[in-house]
């Protein structure tokens, strides 16, 4: 699955850094972006197309804040799954709409025995626990050791150079808040 990195030139990089801050809310936003970095509107659009079609940008759209939308409880639920069962359980968990992320990651023994990570979002901790009970029953996870790690505080959200799809948890911002 690993693809060769895309070759970006300096003008691509300038655009990548600029759009990270957001598409301007004006009628000709790509022209406005170009004005800020000395690039014609056509060139901005061509480079944006290249970044999207090549997969460097997975999605270019509005990013919601799920916390503000009422999904205040965010839990990382981690599972210690036998290697032979991980694909089956991972695929079962991935089917639920309230599970926003489901990844296999390494154990770090002796302190951390868990190798399957899921994120569950809900309106309250009780709601998250109810959803967890549902998947434990429906996916047959009674014998799979797990822990639930609620988030207590978000210290930093997307201050880095790249907001990455995929490590966090803001559902969709899922990705910013998310959790990684």
């Amino acid at each position: 699955m690993k693809m060769h990195p895309l070759k970006l030139d300096d003008r691509d990089r300038a655009l990548v850094a600029l759009i990270q801050k957001g598409l301007p809310l004006v009628p000709r936003p790509y022209a406005e972006l170009g004005r800020r970095i000395g690039m014609a509107e056509d060139e901005v659009m061509q480079r944006m197309d290249k970044l999207r079609l090549s997969g460097a940008i997975k999605r270019f759209g509005v990013i919601v804040r799920h916390r503000e939308l009422g999904y205040r409880a965010n839990a990382m639920v981690v599972w210690d799954v036998p290697e032979a069962e991980i694909a089956e359980l991972g695929n079962c968990l991935a089917r639920y709409p309230f599970i926003t992320l489901c990844y296999r990651r390494p154990r770090r023994l002796p302190h951390w025995p868990y190798n399957l990570f899921t994120m569950i979002h809900g309106q309250s901790r009780a709601a998250v626990c109810g959803k967890l009970a549902q998947v434990i029953g429906e996916c047959g996870l009674d014998d799979i050791p797990h822990e639930i790690l609620f988030s207590r505080r978000r210290f930093k959200q997307c201050g880095a150079r790249y907001c990455t799809a995929g490590e966090t948890v803001e559902p969709a911002r899922t990705h910013e808040e998310a959790t990684a």
Binding site: I57, I63, C163
Partner: peptide, 12 residues
């Protein structure tokens, strides 16, 4: 929060 990209960091 804004209209913005979700990058595939590995691809870059």
């Amino acid at each position: 929060s804004r209209i913005g990209p979700m990058y595939n960091v590995e691809r870059m």
